[in-house]
Simulated assay, not measured.
Amino acid sequence: MPPPRSRPGHSRRAQYGLFFGYVAAVTGMLVAALLLVASVLDPRGYNAIATAATDVTAPLQGGGRGVGRALQDAVDGIAAYVEAGSKNRLLTRELADSRTRLIAAAATERQNRELRALLGISAARPDPVAAARIVGSTPVGGRRFATIDAGASSGVRPGQPVLAAPGLVGRVEAVGQWSARVQLLTDGGNVVPVRRATDGLAGIATGTGDGAIDVRPLVSGANPFRQGDVIVTSGVGGVYAPGIPIGTVSRLTPDGALVRPRADPSAIDFALVYPLYLQPLPPPPPPPAD
């Protein structure tokens, strides 16, 4: 059997909707037919109708065009914002990369200056035992040590002095196969014979354990030190060669002075390990006269 014809049912609203749909379709067909006949039989009348229709729809077209432009401007603004954000992120990354390269270049230049200064030190002194990098140091505490990446395999031995470009760092205390521990000048157990660079005033320098060096003169009497005095090693004791910079007097004490060390391990990358200083033997006594 053929399927039954579909019907809108008993809903009056559905029936009215279907009826008005048919009416609108038939009316549209009739209007189109009339316009076609008018365009053939009465072109002037058709032009008048078309012009009137254009006048009616022009505001709607203008409004729609404005809405379209507004939507296009909004889309363009969003796209520009997204593009600006991506460009901003790219510029930020490029700025960070440039800053990193500048920092690395500055660090390389500082290391080159330090190495050139070390070359000047080695040219003015005997051949060093080893050149090493300072890989760490004690920031706080009464005991002050640094670690270098040269040990027994490089010829490093306990007691040997360690120098950097600014001055004396300390002396080797313990040695491993590939590293060594250096007792810094500021360590409380480090004692160095020193003198004032200007007139040779002798003294003893002892680390205070808090980043400074306490210097006391060997002569009794009034405090002979002044702020700004440069303190160097005296060469007495057979460990440190004479004339190695220790530091500068920063503050006077009742019986001496506090010295700020020139060689700060936290700001130094490289150091040289030297052999123990051997004082020259005194000249032999003259032969007895006949």
Rank of each mutant, 00 (worst) to 15 (best):
V135Q: 11
S137C: 05
R171M: 12
G151N: 06
T138F: 01
P139F: 11
T147H: 13
G159C: 03
V175G: 02
G170P: 01
A152E: 13
V156M: 03
S153K: 14
G167A: 04
A146Y: 06
V156T: 07
I134S: 05
A150Y: 09
P161N: 03
D149H: 12
G167E: 02
P158N: 13
G142D: 14
D149M: 11
F145N: 14
L168V: 12
G151K: 07
G167Q: 02
I134W: 07
V169Y: 00
G155I: 09
R157H: 10
A174W: 14
G142A: 14
Q160M: 11
A165E: 04
R133P: 00
V162D: 03
V140K: 12
G155P: 06
R157Q: 13
R171T: 09
S153V: 08
V172Y: 04
R157Y: 08
V172H: 04
G136C: 07
I148W: 06
P139V: 10
G159A: 08
V172R: 05
T147S: 15
Q160P: 00
V172A: 08
P161V: 04
S137R: 02
R144A: 13
V175E: 04
I134D: 07
Q160L: 01
S153D: 15
L163T: 05
G151E: 06
A150N: 09
G142P: 06
L168P: 02
A164S: 08
V140D: 11
S137T: 06
Q160V: 00
D149T: 08
T147F: 13
V172C: 06
R171K: 12
G170K: 00
S137E: 10
G136W: 04
D149W: 12
V156A: 03
G170L: 03
R133H: 09
A164E: 07
Q160H: 05
R143W: 14
E173W: 08
R133N: 09
V162C: 04
A165V: 01
A164N: 01
V169M: 06
G151P: 08
S153C: 08
V175Q: 05
R143H: 14
G142Y: 15
R157C: 06
G167D: 02
R171G: 10
S153H: 13
V140G: 01
G141W: 09
A164F: 00
G167V: 04
T147K: 15
L163Q: 04
A150K: 14
A152Q: 12
R143E: 15
L163V: 11
V156R: 07
A150D: 08
G159Y: 01
G141H: 11
G167P: 01
T138S: 11
G141E: 10
V135H: 08
A164V: 06
P166Q: 05
R171Y: 08
R143K: 13
A174G: 00
V175F: 05
I134Q: 06
A152R: 15
L163G: 03
G136T: 07
R171S: 14
G136S: 15
G155Q: 08
V156Q: 06
V140I: 09
T147W: 13
P166E: 05
P166C: 03
F145Q: 14
E173K: 10
I134R: 03
V169S: 04
V135I: 15
A150S: 13
